[in-house]
Structure formats: structure tokens, C-alpha cells
Design a protein around this nucleic acid. Structure first.
Length: 819
DNA sequence: TGAAAGCGGGG
DNA sequence: GTGTACGCTTTCA
């Protein structure tokens, strides 16, 4: 590894500052927008479209039109450079004036060589290519945001308020818009006839303020598709791209997912000159590491991060339009509070992707949502190899022969039941530490770039962590260092996963990945043994961490000392950390448990303890019962169960408490065709309510009454909007039967539900999740819906029932000796 | 028992 | 078409 360009592997080499967006086309043209204070400079550039190849065989038919690359080879249609590397590798970089030309040339040659028509580059594993922007950035060594701070970036948030969730059934009536330069306003459409004007105003506002970034929570899943649908219905073109780009409209394309009709349509969006950021992606990525965000909803997440204002306005989703008609000012406040929270989330979570964009050769918006291994680390590795003039490894064949499968991390349930005084220890960055300590990298990485990068990132990250601590809290400098260390952590954690990735990854090495997990299991086993020798009650071990119960009288200090003592026995470079302590833990199955913190918070992990149907009454019962079980208040568990049964039998609960929600996948025709043999509650509920028409994808909330299923529409009475343009465009006949319009409020309070069905559901679906906490006979007795306390003489009095305790062994023995 | 489909989140 | 989200679950054959 040469000294002088080491960090070029990590950060690129071209110093161009302030790039906020890049748009490159397959014909070699690129547009770059740079920010200089409040000014935007738009420049045009060109690059040489390229791809990597293992062979030149497919280009033989070009004859003299194929030439080795030289600055003045003007007449060749394809040129190539040879890279250093073994025979079987991506040794050639092919260049052409246009990617289209390059691809069709290769496809022609490959078809000839293989004796069959090849139409897609994807069918050839002897070539490797990346998207136009990636090509441009890798070739020039440029990256986004050089010398910029996150505060420099001009970010705009907009949020739609609509009359229904489905754009087939509702419309936009309000749009809140703000930016980090002081803009905060709403655009409104009180009646359906105002919607077109409002969408045009939104476009004008975006062009006028000209942000670098457009952000919202669930932007790709809701706002953009809804906006696109309504703009099409209103006949408005969404021209919101940046001046200087060859295309100004919002671009959307369906990712062709072969199965299903419209139901599983995944749409991607892109816009020239502006980056589209969905804070929902950022939340997901954050939780991928911390794994304790209970809900990804905007309001919940804002509270979780402590950025929700105490004065913020909350309105239930289905009430928003109703509220708007009565009290529009309240909805304006609500919508502006939403975009303010999105800005807060962005500041809290997007610093890391921002920092990543100043390292990896990809668009900021892609780095914000890309998988860290294939999406971020690999482009860095590819750029490094190309910059070093080295061939990339080709290993698709041997990879599949070796079968990338290897054993994973250690996952063990060591006890189930309820434990008190629980501590958690885990090994800090277990896999990357093992890779670094034992120098385990992919064997095909001849330059050792992955291990080099890993080591460099680890060192730099410590420096940035330290600098973040030293800087004034909340200052631009502190934020910069905090975000950079977070970005580096993402890359560090991706290193192992990348080696273990299947044959898709250029530098995958299943054997090396297996070596890492093998050593990881050994380390964790060593920790488990050490804890056990000291009498701790082991509960659950998962990859790099362990939960265990300590003696009841231990302080946090004693727990920390124990972990420090055990950590000192581990190999150098491997650090055991104290992760936290809990008042109690209910251990159900591997990766499925509940924790009760010392400050009274209930944390539920794993879906075995959650419900996917999640009728509100059942969820409430379960949370209370979990808490009481962990506190040992078994009498209260029984009481909570009986209260719920009574509330059901006396019909004290509104129907909305018993409702569940399902997404439709079948069109009306499809459902009707199969209805005789197979009925499904959600569709039956709609039909019973008089609905004849629906679109796959619609969410239906319903409950079970004594006379069938009842639809609870989460809509206001203005819905549905006319949607006939689409039927006409598709050459269909517009729906002839007018849709019914029922209001949620009219039915949500009904009490005609099927009591015995819900009593059964309470027992078999919710109480059942506490089964592991009790002995079988005790469980049966606790959750028997009759109110007679004892049917059998064998019954234990409720007040004597105990959970199945998991206890510190030596403490138990000591207690026995005392008595 | 294994593969395929569903789900989150948004008004 | 400006690259394969994601990591689980439930359901179905």
C-alpha cells in the first residue's frame, strides 16, 4: 500500500468543494451543482462511460475499431485499458463515447460467442458496471459535500394532508412546506376544485426556493406517489427539477416486480439537481443497530429522540380532514409541526449519510438508503482498485462452488421464565474487531484494501469521537465529528457482512466470514463460561452479547466490575462492554423477550411477544400483563385478564378497540371469482357495507360482529374522489355504481361485536404469549375466563402462584443454607 | 417442511 | 432503469 494516497481510498482524491448534486447521463454528459454560500453554481462536465470486463473476446468483431486507450484515439468506437491482476479477473476497463453503444457492442459480441441472443448485461457475469453518476464520481475522484457542513445544505420539507390514505379514494387538501432558511407556510385546497392550483403552487415554491434536498417521513412510500397520482389526475406536470438539468420533471419508474398486479408496485423517484431523502429510511437504518425503536411512525420517533415539542398539535389520522373543516388553523399547526419534526429527525439522523457522501462515490440520496455493504463499501473498494490500476477479482464461479454458506453467530436460549436483577454485557464491534485483530480479510482482496480501510476507519472514528466530546455541545463542529464517527461506524459494521455476502459481492469470501463467526462464537463462549463460573444465571446469548441475572443485592458498580474482570481475560483488541441493567426480564424464546427497566419502562423484543394483528384491546392487556408478571404481581395479572373479559361481555369496549387491519391484494373481479369457495373477512366487510369497487393496496379495518364482518372506514365523508381519468386511460368503463360513504365515527363506537370470539382471541392469542412465564397448570388457571376461583381442589390459590423464576444460583444456595 | 408473500409507514 | 432496501413474519402448497 503506497503511503501518499492511502486516504484517497477512503475519501477520493479530487478536491472540488461543495458538490450538492450530480446528474450524469449514459452519453457521457454530466451536470454538477455546487454550493458556494447561498449561491448555486451549475457546471457541465463530461466523462468517458466505462465498464469492466474479464475478456476482450466479445469485442473481436470490432476489428480496428477496438484500440488500446490513448488520449488521441478518436476513431475507435471502443477503447480499453488493461489493469494489473491475475488472468481470471476484471482486467479490462472498456471505454466508449456512450454507454448504450458500449453495451450493444458487448451484447452483439457475446451473442456471437455464446451462439444465442443475449439482450441484457445482467445475463453476463463477465462484465461489471455501475450507474452513470457512480461512473462519473469514480472516474474523477470527486465526492459530494467536500468542505461543507450539514448546516450549509439547503433542505426543504413538505408534507401532504389528504382526505384518505389511498389516492384513488382521496385528494390533497393541504401541504405544509418549510426549509432550513426560514420558510414555513401552508398551501391549501378547501374544495376538490382547488387541488390543481395548490399543486402548481407547490411546484412554484420549490423552484423559487431552490433547495438542494427535499425531505419527508415516508416520502417514497406516501407523499411522492400520492402527489404524482393527484398531479396526473389534475393534469399538472411536476416540473420541480433544478435549473441547468436536461430534465426538469419528477421522474418515477416502477420497479418491475413480476408477481401480483398493482398490489406490490414499488416505485422509485429521482429528480435532477435535488436529492430526495426519506427520514423513514434513516430511522430504519438507525434501528438496525440499536434495535429498540418501538414504532417508526413520525410522532413516535420524534418523541423517542426527544425532538417533539411539548406544545405540538396532535390529530388522529382519520380526523384530520374533519378537523380542517371545523378548525383549519389547528390543522395548519399540526402539519407545520410535522415538517418541523422531520427537520429535527434529519438533523439527528442524516448527518451520517451526509458524511458518507463525502467518502463514497455515490449520490447522497442513494447513500442515505443503500445497504451499507453492497451499497456503500463496495463502491469504495471498486474506486480504490481502479485508482490503483488493479484488476477487480472475478469469482462468481468459485464462489458458488464453495457455497458461501457458513455458520453464523452463537444464538442460545439458556433459560426461559422471569428473571430479576438482569445485566447485559456485549463485545464491542465483535466482528470488525476480530477481522482487525486477527487480520481476517477476503483472500481475493490482493491490495488488502478492506482491512486497510477497516483499520483506518477504526482509528479515525476514535479521533472523531474524541473531537466530538471535546467540542462545544451542539456546535457545528461537534455535530460534524459526531456524524463522521457515526458514518464510520456504519462502514466498520458493514465489513463483515460484506465478506459474507453471497456471490453478488466482488470481494465476498465465505471462508473468511466463517472464520470470523467461528472466532466470535469462541469469544462469546468464553464470556458465558466465565459468567457461569461466578454463579451468574445465564438467560440468553446472541452473537455478541449476553443477558444474565446477578445477585439481588448487587449494585451497578459491582456489575461493571464483574464485566471488567471477565473482559480482561479476552484476547487483546477484543473489548467487553457493560450495556445496561434491568429490573426484570421475561425470557420467552431466542430473540423474544420483555425487559423492565429500573425507571419503569417496558421494552418488548421480538414478534412472539407482539401481535401482528394487534387488536388494541389485546395489546393493552398484554402490556399490562407483561409488566405485572415481571413485577411478580400475579394477582393483578389475573385481575387484568378478568377485567378485560368482563369489559367484552358487558360490551364496555367500542368496536374500534377490537378492530384489525388488513391490506387488500385482490381486485374485485378476482375476489368474486373465488368467493364461493373461499371467503375472506376484509372483503366480506366491504361488500356488506355496499362497496363494489376497490383497488389492491387499500387498507381495510374491520371487526367481527354476530352478523358477519363490519367495515370501519378510516375516511371522511368527502371521500371517495373521482378517479375516472384512470379508468378511461386504461380503456375501462368507469365504475357505474356510486361508492357508499360511511364515516368511521358512525361505526367505531358500535357494540355489536361477537363477544365469545374476542374472549377466545384474548386467551389464545394474547394471554398465550405469557405461557413460558408460568408452570402449565398455573397458566391454565390464570387465564380461565370463568370467574369462579377454584373449580378443582388441585388449584393453587392465585396469591400463591409464582412465575417460573430464573435466579442467581449462588444466591439460592445461600438462602438454603440460612434456613 | 420449505418457499413465497406480506409488512412497516403515510391521511 | 441514475442498481438488487430489509429483515423479519405469516401463509400456503
Amino acid at each position: 500500500m503506497r503511503e501518499h494516497n492511502e486516504d484517497e481510498y477512503l475519501f477520493g482524491w479530487n478536491p472540488t468543494p461543495g458538490i450538492v448534486s450530480v446528474w450524469a447521463q449514459r452519453d457521457g454528459r454530466a451536470v454538477i451543482w455546487r454550493r458556494d454560500g447561498e449561491r448555486i453554481l451549475c457546471t457541465r462536465d463530461s466523462y468517458r462511460p466505462w465498464m469492466l470486463a474479464t475478456t476482450l473476446d466479445d469485442l473481436k468483431h470490432l476489428g480496428s475499431m477496438l484500440q488500446p486507450f490513448a488520449p488521441d484515439t478518436m476513431h475507435a468506437s471502443v477503447t480499453y485499458k488493461e489493469l494489473d491482476g491475475p488472468g481470471r479477473s476484471y482486467r479490462y476497463v472498456l471505454f466508449s463515447r456512450n454507454m448504450r453503444v458500449l453495451e450493444s457492442t458487448v451484447l452483439t459480441g457475446a451473442s456471437r460467442r455464446l451462439g444465442q441472443r443475449i439482450t441484457a448485461m445482467n445475463d453476463l457475469d463477465t462484465y461489471y458496471s455501475v450507474g452513470p453518476v457512480e461512473q462519473y464520481l469514480m472516474q474523477t475522484g470527486q465526492v459530494y459535500f467536500r468542505d461543507m457542513s450539514y448546516e450549509n445544505l439547503h433542505r426543504m420539507q413538505f408534507d401532504l394532508e389528504t382526505t384518505a390514505l389511498d389516492p384513488h379514494r382521496g385528494r390533497i387538501f393541504l401541504i405544509a412546506v418549510r426549509d432550513n432558511r426560514g420558510l414555513a407556510t401552508t398551501l391549501e385546497a378547501p374544495g376538490p376544485e382547488d387541488e390543481k392550483r395548490m399543486i402548481q403552487e407547490l411546484c412554484a415554491l420549490i423552484l423559487k426556493h431552490d433547495p438542494d434536498v427535499i425531505e419527508n417521513h415516508n416520502l417514497f412510500g406516501f407523499d411522492l406517489p400520492f402527489l404524482e397520482h393527484r398531479a396526473l389526475a389534475a393534469g399538472v406536470t411536476l416540473e420541480i427539477g433544478r435549473a441547468g438539468s436536461p430534465r426538469r420533471t419528477l421522474d418515477s419508474y416502477q420497479e418491475t416486480l413480476a408477481i401480483g398486479p398493482e398490489a406490490r408496485k414499488r416505485t422509485r423517484y429521482s429528480l435532477a439537481g435535488r436529492e430526495l431523502i426519506d427520514t423513514l429510511d434513516a430511522v430504519r437504518r438507525h434501528d438496525f443497530v440499536v434495535r429498540d425503536i418501538p414504532s417508526y411512525g413520525l410522532k413516535d420517533v420524534a418523541r423517542y429522540f426527544g425532538i417533539a415539542s411539548s406544545h405540538r398539535t396532535y390529530i388522529e389520522g382519520s380526523d384530520i380532514f374533519e378537523t380542517y373543516r371545523r378548525d383549519p388553523a389547528r390543522v395548519r399547526r399540526y402539519a407545520l409541526d410535522d415538517v418541523t419534526e422531520v427537520d429535527g429527525l434529519s438533523r439527528r439522523l442524516l448527518g451520517a449519510p451526509f458524511a458518507l457522501a463525502s467518502m463514497a462515490p455515490r449520490r447522497y440520496e442513494r447513500l442515505a438508503s443503500a445497504g451499507p455493504a453492497m451499497g456503500i463499501l463496495e463502491p469504495i473498494l471498486v474506486r480504490s482498485y481502479l485508482h490503483a490500476g488493479a484488476a477487480l477479482p472475478y469469482q462468481a464461479a468459485q464462489q458458488s462452488a464453495e457455497g458461501g454458506l457458513h455458520e453464523g453467530g452463537m444464538v442460545q436460549l439458556l433459560a426461559s421464565g422471569v428473571a430479576e436483577h438482569v445485566a447485559k454485557a456485549d463485545v464491542a464491534s465483535l466482528y470488525p474487531s476480530l477481522m482487525r485483530t486477527f487480520q481476517i480479510g477476503p483472500s481475493c482482496d490482493r491490495l488488502g484494501v478492506l482491512l486497510y480501510i477497516l483499520g483506518r476507519l477504526t482509528d479515525l472514528r476514535l479521533q472523531h469521537k474524541e473531537a466530538a466530546r471535546a467540542a462545544q455541545p451542539g456546535s457545528i463542529e461537534a455535530n460534524h465529528h459526531a456524524a463522521t464517527q457515526a458514518a464510520m461506524k456504519i462502514l466498520i459494521n458493514a465489513a463483515y457482512g460484506y465478506m459474507g455476502a453471497g456471490s453478488m459481492a466482488l470481494f465476498a469470501d465465505g471462508r473468511a466470514a466463517g472464520e470470523v463467526t467461528r472466532r466470535g462464537r469462541a469469544i462469546l463462549q468464553q464470556v458465558l463460561d466465565a459468567l457461569q463460573q461466578r454463579g451468574m444465571a445465564l438467560i440468553e446469548a446472541d452473537t455478541d452479547g449476553v443477558y444474565f441475572a446477578v445477585p439481588p443485592d448487587w449494585t451497578e458498580q459491582q456489575e461493571r466490575m464483574l464485566i471488567a474482570e471477565i473482559g480482561a481475560e479476552l484476547p487483546a483488541g477484543i473489548r467487553l462492554e457493560y450495556e445496561g441493567r434491568y429490573r426484570a426480564m421475561l425470557s420467552h424464546e431466542v430473540k423474544n423477550y420483555a425487559l423492565l427497566s429500573y425507571d419503569g419502562r417496558l421494552i418488548v423484543h421480538g414478534v412472539a411477544l407482539r401481535s401482528s394483528r394487534s387488536e388494541p384491546f389485546g395489546e393493552r392487556f398484554l402490556r399490562k400483563a407483561l409488566r405485572n408478571t415481571m413485577l411478580g404481581n400475579i394477582v393483578d395479572v389475573r385481575a387484568g385478564y378478568l377485567d378485560t373479559v368482563e369489559a367484552l361481555r358487558k360490551r364496555k369496549l367500542p368496536a374500534s378497540d377490537l378492530a384489525t387491519q388488513v391490506r387488500l391484494t385482490k381486485k374485485p373481479e378476482t375476489y368474486h371469482a373465488a368467493r364461493q369457495t373461499h371467503q375472506e373477512p376484509a372483503y366480506e366487510a366491504l361488500i356488506k357495507a355496499g362497496r363494489t369497487h376497490w383497488h389492491p393496496g387499500e387498507r381495510v379495518r374491520f371487526y367481527r360482529s354476530t352478523k358477519g364482518y363490519v367495515w370501519l372506514p378510516d375516511e371522511t365523508e368527502e371521500a371517495p374522489v373521482s378517479d375516472d381519468w384512470r379508468a378511461r386511460a386504461n380503456g375501462e368503463r368507469p365504475a357505474t355504481t356510486p361508492d357508499v360513504s360511511i364515516r368511521y365515527a358512525d361505526v367505531a363506537n358500535r357494540r355489536d361485536y361477537d363477544v365469545e370470539y374476542y374472549v377466545r382471541l384474548l386467551t389464545t392469542s394474547y394471554a398465550a404469549r405469557l405461557r413460558k412465564a408460568f408452570a402449565p397448570a398455573d397458566f391454565e388457571q390464570l387465564f380461565r375466563p370463568d370467574t369462579q376461583l377454584s373449580l378443582f381442589d388441585l388449584d393453587t390459590p392465585i396469591e400463591h402462584i409464582q412465575p417460573r423464576w430464573i435466579r442467581y444460583q449462588q444466591a439460592l444456595e445461600a438462602a438454603r443454607e440460612d434456613s
